[in-house]
Every structure is written in C-alpha cells, then in structure tokens.
Design a protein around this nucleic acid. Structure first.
Lengths: 334, 334
DNA sequence: TTGTATGCGTTATCAC
DNA sequence: GTGATAACGCATACAA
C-alpha cells in the first residue's frame, strides 16, 4: 500500500505538504497540488483507514448484532442497515448472537474497544427471556450509543425502533371479525416468550375482548420442525369450527394453509389465514395467505439513520420510533 | 476508554512496563504484573483495537461481499462465515452488492485500505453477466487475498469454494429417471445467466442425454413475482405429460407444487418435484418437495477457514474446494 | 526488572 | 507555500 511517506520521497517534498495537497489545502500551490495528485492516482494511493481512525478516534463503523440472519425478517433489516450505512459512509461489522446471551455479550465486549462508534442490535432470545441485560447497560454507560430494534428491553434507556406489534395484530384481527365475519379465530404461536410475541398476543386478545369473542391459542415449540405440521393438522381436524387462523410468525401460517387444504377446508371461503410475512412470503402459499408485512427494510434504514444522527450529536434526546406494518390481504382473484 | 498511559500514570510506572505486564512478559516481576492487571480489570481496560491494527498492520477483519442477504442461501452462508470467523478471532465487515457491479466495485475499493486482511465474496449478477471483473483482479494484485464462493469467475486465480452444481443436478435427474421412472422432466429456471445456473442446466441436459430423453426448459424472469405462478400454471395445464419438475432455485419448486395441486395433479404419484432448498424449505410445501440441499453453512465455514489459513501463510497453493450437496427426498409418508 | 525511544500512517499546529 | 514536529495508543528493540 502506498503511503504519504512514499509519495513525499518520490516527489522530494515533505509528508505534510503531500497531506495538505491531497486534502485541497489552500496553503498549497496549484502546481504542487497537481503534481501530488497525479502521482497519487498513478500509484493508487488510498489513505490508510486505520491510521485515520486512530488519529480521529472514530471508526466510522457500526456494530450490528443480530440474533440470527436466516430469519428473513432480520435478513431484510440487515439489508436496510447496510444500505443506510453505505449512504452515510459507514461500514458495518456484523455479529450473530445465535440467540444466546453469551455470544451477545462477547460480541458487545469485543467491539467495545474502538472498533465501532455505536451499536444496532436486537436482543437475543436468551437475554430477553432470562432478563439478563447488564452487559448492554455496561456498553451504554461506557458512552457507546446503542440502538435497539424490534426486540427491545423496556428498562434500558436508548434509542429504539420498534414495530407496531400490538396495533397491527389488533387491526388484523378486527378485520377478520368485521369484514370476514369470523368468530372462531385461532392464534398460532411459537414466540410467546419474546417481547414481540407478547405484544402480538395482547393485540389479538384485546381485539377479541372488544368484540366479545374468546381467545384460542395453539402454542408450538419455538424450534420449527416437522412436528409443527402434525400439531396444526391435529388441531384443525379436532376443531372444525375454527374459521380463521392468525399466525404470529412467518412460517406457521403457510403450514396452516397447507394443512387446512389437506383436511379439505376451503380457503378463503371457510377459513381465513393471516400471518406475518416479508418479501416473498405470499408467493409461497396457494391460496395466498394474508400477511402483516413488517417494513423490515425500513426498520433497518431508520435504525441506522437514527444512530448516525445521534453519533453526529444531532440528536440528543432519546426517542422510540414506531414503524407501522401494512396489512396485505390475499387477493381473492387467485 | 482507559489507555496504557492512564494505567501507567496511576501506577507511577512506565507505559512499556504496563504493556509488558499485560502481555505476560517474562521480564516483568510477579508483583508489578499483578498490580497492573488488577488495576486494568478494575478500570475495565481494553487494548485499543485500532492502535493494535496500525501497529501490526493487520486488521483481523475479513471483508464479506454478498450479492444479497435476503436469499436464504447467502444468509446461511453468512451465518457459517460469522461462526468460523468468530472462532478464529476475526471480525467481518459485511457489504451487499445488491447484484450490481458498481456497488461491488465500491465495496472492494473502500475496504482495500487496511480495513480488512482479505475478502470472501460471491460475484454480483451484473459482474458475472457482463464479465466485468477487473476490479477483483486489481484487489488480488494489490496482495489482498480474495476467496470466491458459489458464483465464481473462472479466469481469476484464487481460492474457491463451490457447490457441485453439475453433479448434484445430474444425480437428481438420474434419480427421477431411474427410480421414479419419469420421462418428461421439466426444468424451471430463472437464473440461467449465472454460472451456477448454467452448471445446473448442464447437469440436467447431460443426464437426459445419457438416458435418451429430451430436455424441456421453462425460462422465467429472474425477478420473482406473481407472474411466476401464472406462467407455471399455464405451462403445466398445456403440457399434461410432464411427470417431473426440476426447479433450479429455491422458490419456483414450491410454486410448482401449489400450481400442480390446483390443476389436480397428484404429487408424488403423477408428478415428482425437486428443487433447491435450505433449512426450512421443505416445511413450506405440502406434499413435501424433494430438495437438493446445498450445505450453505458449511460453504461459509470452509470459505472462512481457507481464507484465514492462507492469511496465516499456512496455505500458499491455491485450491478449489467442492462442497457436495445432499439430495433430500420427500418422505412419501406425508 | 524497569524505562526510554521509535515507529505504524495520518492529521494538525506551528514555525519558517 | 512549505516543512518540521507532535500526537493518536500500542508494541518492541534497546538501554539502563
């Protein structure tokens, strides 16, 4: 890699002159500036990022800590983060907690040494369930800003970007009741221990209450495996009065459609199915599932922008941004 | 952040003594070493990573450039990369090319300034289609090692980790012919312009040739949208003699199953369906699709290990590793 | 056993 | 308009 020193030596001028010339300092003469720049491009000089970082004590890098990236929600969020970061000339270092406390802790710890200027994270399942979040507080106390999205710790004060989990489910359920005239709505859940799961269940329960209907919840293991099919199949078979299904994750809704068809129930005639979903979710089911589409990409973008703003000191008051979801109904034309 | 200087000042000893003590140098007395370490842990001292990087001229960071991360294949590869990197005490900086040449170029360029010690990448669609790969060659010439996986540029010499695209499809097709007695196998393709797509098509064509059958290819736009359903539906309707479908991506196979059911074809009785797939792919279809399961996670792990080995100078000869896929048949028990 | 000095590549302050 | 010098935080060769 070419350095300032090398350029200076070749041009027989001092390092500082080269530096200034490259940075378009007014002190430098037109002549030398051109000479310097020519040689620089010729030798493909690039300022050493590490040295700049040491000098300025900022890394222009964001640490991104995700529970997993094989879940399409987080993948899409990551996409949004990457775009926004790039647009602001930030890099991202990505760590995956794999839903474990210890990996999350380790990642925060390892990056809290100047590697990053701040963090964007969604809390690992284990941390959230066991309510162990001291490691996150430590980071914040060490003056490294943390932005939490989606899965959020209530008693930690920091910028947050969340989804309207309660409201979006409430609205979807209400739509099932009012528009589709459903009375027996089953909720299928495999994430009831997460903050988002609880919010979604609350939205469901409240909507039913408000319409004097009673809730009906089928809980599944959070490890999504083949058993899911069997359990849903059995349940639907045993409860033929179910006339709508609300899945609060992005896969059991599709499974439910497949199982219902197998039993011979007509969709959407005798059964409405709503799930959470993303880009291609609807393409994978036939008849089409209705989805609560979380704007994952947007969540990533907003999180990044909010963190970077606070990094620039443009935003000192902490805030919580709610990104609304969109209810995408299946087109009955299918 | 605590620094060596601060520790030294508080202990009234020199910086280098502190440094040596923390690094367990034999030169330092038991006594001071303990004193130093105690204070260090008390003040939560962490060596400034940036300074270490500048000093040692290595970043212990790998640049990972992916075409996208919402495709589950790349998401799973990323997971593997992250795990292997973490195990080797490396960080990863992730950039997404969004399948474009210019973003890929930009990412390589921006990180080629000391930010990373090497790259792991899968070539963007645009770069591969237009055969513009000079930017990659430039990086390699600048002595930054590049490892390419999955989508690979033949005339670039570097370490590579690829999938047995040709062979796995060949085997799958042969299985359809020999075991399932299929004679009219349709290939559904939306990635025929990618190297991997071409290899998969070759495997298909060759297998048919070897059994004196004739190929039959349905090409779709690579933008996966609702039209896919209609096209597949129409085709199946118009060609009732089709008795097997091979999808060379991870979504059109499921769509094909749904459309075939709609037409009334029985699976797997009169129609076998094989696609590419990952972790949860099979869960999303009913009856189960058979999948060629690429070991995406393993591809990520091996890529990372190979790159790190070469970084350590343990591996000077370039190699190409082929990671075999696994044909996962649908259990007819469903 | 401890301390001093130097350099990594850059930027910035100050003197010439 | 140019250059010498210091500093960022750390590691290490060398001196004491």
């Amino acid at each position: 890699m070419t350095t300032l020193k090398e350029l200076a030596a070749l041009l027989n001028i001092s390092i500082s002159t080269v530096s200034k010339a490259l940075n378009d300092s007014h002190e430098i003469s037109e002549n030398t500036r051109i000479r310097v720049k020519e040689l620089a491009t010729k030798l493909n000089y690039k300022p050493n990022r590490i040295a700049q970082q040491l000098k300025t004590n900022t890394s222009k890098t964001i640490g991104v800590i995700l529970p997993t990236v094989t879940n399409p929600f987080f993948a899409e969020v990551l996409h949004g983060i990457e775009m926004a970061a790039t647009n602001n000339d930030y890099d991202i270092i990505v760590c995956l907690s794999n839903e474990t406390l210890h990996k999350e802790k380790r990642s925060l710890d390892l990056l809290s040494n100047g590697s990053v200027d701040g963090f964007i994270m969604a809390v690992a399942r284990e941390s959230q369930v066991t309510k162990q979040t001291d490691h996150i507080k430590d980071v914040i106390e060490s003056k490294l800003p943390v932005l939490m999205f989606d899965r959020v710790v209530d008693d930690i004060e920091c910028n947050k970007v969340i989804v309207d989990d309660f409201q979006s489910v409430y609205d979807a359920v209400e739509h099932l009741i009012v528009n589709d005239k459903r009375k027996n709505i089953l909720l299928v859940s495999n994430i009831e221990e997460l903050s988002v799961g609880q919010l979604r269940i609350s939205g469901y329960t409240k909507a039913l209450e408000d319409h004097n209907l009673k809730p009906n919840i089928l809980k599944l293991d959070h490890a999504v495996d083949v058993d899911v099919e069997k359990k849903i199949y059995k349940y639907l078979k045993a409860n033929p009065t179910i006339d709508a299904i609300l899945s609060i994750d992005h896969v059991t809704g599709i499974v439910a459609i497949n199982m219902a068809k197998k039993i011979g129930r007509e969709i959407p005639k005798d059964l409405s199915v709503v799930g959470f979903g993303y880009e291609h979710t609807q393409l994978l089911s036939s008849p089409k599932i209705s989805i609560i589409h979380q704007k994952a990409h947007r969540i990533g973008e907003m999180s990044t922008q909010l963190l970077i703003d606070s990094l620039k000191g443009e935003n000192h008051k902490l805030q919580t941004i709610v990104v609304p979801s969109e209810l995408q109904l299946s087109e009955s034309s299918n």
